[in-house]
Simulated assay, not measured.
Amino acid sequence: MRSAVLTEVSRDDTAPRHTLARAIFDTDDLTTFLTARVGVGPLTNELQYRRLRPPGKAECKRLLLPLDLKNVLVRKGITRTAIQTARPPLVLVSYVAVVVRFRLPEAVRKELEHGSIGLGEALRPHGVRRHVTDVQLTSAADRIGGQRFVRVKATLSLPGAGPVALLDEILYASAVCRARFTGRPRSS
């Protein structure tokens, strides 16, 4: 995974937001990227719901699916700090994932349908690639994590399977308020 370097900055500085947005294009795992760079400790995934529904035309197009596909798996949840020192817990990311179940390895399909494991974590051993399609700076707020910072849309793919999921993620300001992404790659 490619990475960026962090330094101290205030939350009101807009330059780090643009640098962070550019750095997001270079990572295959947003949660691991944040954990390693922001220093918030271990994280946990909380699945809020999972359901099956027919894919929309735009989803079929982006996921290279036949228009008559009956169902995709939709997962919605949050990634938050595992150690709860704040009430409510610090939410780093909220997400909605549209998943093509038949393209997943059987073990991953079972994990996603019966557990709360994060999609990236479940797919990591199978060579998942993240293709960021859109990053938007935002300053709206919501009840889930407070002040929004960046919205990311991405497609996940697996070797030999093609696109397996669409992601819509919100990264919250509380996750990066003390960090600046300079954009310089960290040496390996």
Rank of each mutant, 00 (worst) to 15 (best):
D28Y: 01
L158H: 08
P88F: 08
F33G: 03
N71K: 14
T85G: 14
F102Y: 15
R184M: 08
R17Q: 12
R22P: 02
V150C: 07
A58E: 15
L112Y: 03
V164F: 08
A154D: 06
F149M: 00
V9P: 11
I144C: 01
L167T: 01
T31M: 02
S187R: 10
C177S: 15
E46V: 14
T7S: 13
F25G: 00
R17Y: 10
I24R: 00
N45R: 08
E113D: 05
V152K: 00
S94R: 03
G115I: 04
V135A: 05
R2V: 09
D26M: 00
Q84P: 06
L43K: 00
R62S: 07
G120M: 08
A15V: 10
T44A: 11
F149G: 00
H114M: 07
V108R: 02
P66K: 04
R62A: 09
K57P: 11
T14G: 07
S116K: 08
D68T: 14
F33D: 02
E46H: 13
T31S: 10
T7G: 13
R22Q: 02
T182Q: 03
D26T: 03
L69M: 10
L67F: 07
E169L: 05
E46W: 14
R143G: 12
Y172M: 05
T81N: 01
D142T: 10
L158T: 09
T81V: 03
R53Q: 14
S174D: 11
I78R: 00
D134P: 00
L119Q: 06
P88V: 07
T35V: 12
E111L: 15
L73H: 08
K153H: 11
T7L: 12
V150A: 06
P185W: 14
N71G: 08
V135W: 03
K57E: 14
A179P: 00
P88T: 08
P125Y: 11
G162H: 11
D134K: 00
L112K: 06
R17F: 07
L112T: 06
L90Y: 07
P125T: 09
A4F: 15
A97S: 13
V96E: 09
Q147N: 09
E121K: 11
S188T: 10
V100Q: 03
G160M: 14
L171I: 12
L34C: 02
L158C: 12
L112G: 06
Y49A: 11
S116Q: 13
P185S: 15
V100A: 07
G77H: 04
G118N: 12
A23G: 01
L52E: 13
L137W: 03
L43V: 06
P54Q: 12
T19A: 08
S3H: 15
G120K: 06
S139T: 12
L137F: 04
I170A: 15
L158D: 13
A140F: 08
G41K: 02
G127T: 12
G145T: 05
T14Q: 14
G183V: 07
K61N: 10
S10P: 11
